[in-house]
């Protein structure tokens, strides 16, 4: 018995998997791990490339890198430019190492806030309410926001360290991040749902944070993956995504541009359907959820590769199987 037919069989099973179900369970496990893992004394460090929120003190199994990053950048300038800042560099490298493994797959499969948005979407779907879309013009404008937020997220802590801004503005992104309020809730901590009246800056920042959380709840109800569009982590990911191991590849010659991938894309990325030249098709908005691969009827047109090895490839058989399932149950 040669290993080849076995391998082919495994490949077929993977490619024809009921992808949505697989992803649902994967996300659920990841959510439980990162929101409740702390109770099992799991601690994966503080350089995680997704929103495993540090404010969820009890349950977190690791901490989102943006929290320590902002704090490190917020050191007094004298200290920032000293040897002590080597820690910033090593911290960043650790973050990059984490990131490289799954690329933006952290967003699509692991990020608790992303999972939460998918669940809110599922709720809407079950209620039979249609989702909203951006127009192309809105998309082109909104997609820049995450880079602006990333820049602010770096500049404001520097300003805090330099004494320009109040310490009540630190860490700026965490203060406006919905994950800070929502994830601790899952371990019974509602203390983030307060307005801090201790100073004017604190009032502003906490009120802004609450407003954005409220927007998040409304937004993710009508728009799939509403927040990911504005996520500075996503922007940071994109900037360092070149050496990542998990990749989304497209073979333009096999693409019929039918737009099936675009139709299922939570992030409304048009390139996935229309671009037949780029092989590395992951864009800045992509969450690498791989739904596009699962919904592509052209064998080999889209695939996810890990370190160059295809691990999930679009196949006709897989498409038909998933499609039939959709027709019968409809999720």
């Amino acid at each position: 018995m040669s290993a080849k037919p076995v391998l082919d069989k495994v490949r077929d099973v993977v490619n024809e998997v009921d992808f949505n179900r697989f992803r649902f369970w994967f996300q659920l496990v990841a959510f439980v791990l990162f929101v409740y893992g702390g109770y099992l004394a799991i601690d994966l460090g503080s350089k995680l490339p997704f929103f495993s929120c540090g404010y969820n003190r009890e349950g977190r199994a690791g901490v989102c890198y943006l929290l320590p990053l902002q704090h490190q950048l917020g050191r007094p300038l004298a200290m920032l430019f000293s040897m002590a800042s080597l820690a910033i560099l090593t911290g960043f490298l650790t973050f990059v190492l984490w990131f490289i493994v799954l690329n933006k797959g952290w967003c699509g499969f692991v990020c608790p806030l992303g999972t939460l948005q998918d669940w809110i979407s599922a709720l809407r779907r079950r209620m039979g309410i249609r989702f909203s879309n951006y127009t192309q013009g809105q998309f082109a404008q909104l997609t820049k926001i995450k880079f602006v937020l990333l820049a602010l997220m770096i500049l404001i802590p520097l300003g805090v360290g330099g004494g320009i801004f109040s310490r009540d503005m630190s860490p700026p992104f965490c203060l406006i991040c919905p994950a800070r309020m929502i994830l601790p809730m899952f371990t019974g901590d509602f203390s983030q749902f307060t307005v801090d009246f201790s100073s004017k800056t604190a009032i502003f920042m906490t009120a802004l944070g609450i407003s954005i959380t409220a927007l998040f709840l409304v937004g993710s109800f009508v728009k799939k993956r509403f927040f990911c569009f504005f996520c500075p982590m996503s922007a940071l990911h994109y900037l360092i995504s070149k050496p990542a191991l998990l990749k989304l590849k497209k073979d333009g010659s096999k693409c019929t541009r039918c737009g099936d991938c675009y139709a299922v894309c939570d992030m409304e990325i048009k390139e996935i359907a229309d671009d037949v030249k780029t092989t590395d098709i992951m864009t800045d908005d992509c969450t690498l959820c791989l739904k596009c691969v699962a919904s592509c009827p052209e064998s080999g047109a889209l695939k996810a590769t890990f370190a160059g090895i295809p691990i999930f490839v679009s196949t006709e058989a897989g498409f038909i199987k998933r499609m039939n399932k959709g027709c019968q149950h409809g999720k």
Binding site: F193, T194, V195, D196, F197, S211, L215, L217, G219
Partner: peptide
Amino acid sequence: PNDYRSYAWGLGIGLLIVLFC
């Protein structure tokens, strides 16, 4: 924190924005 943090305001603002939006 009870001296300077307000749930009432927090939830109030949140609810207001949820309702409005």
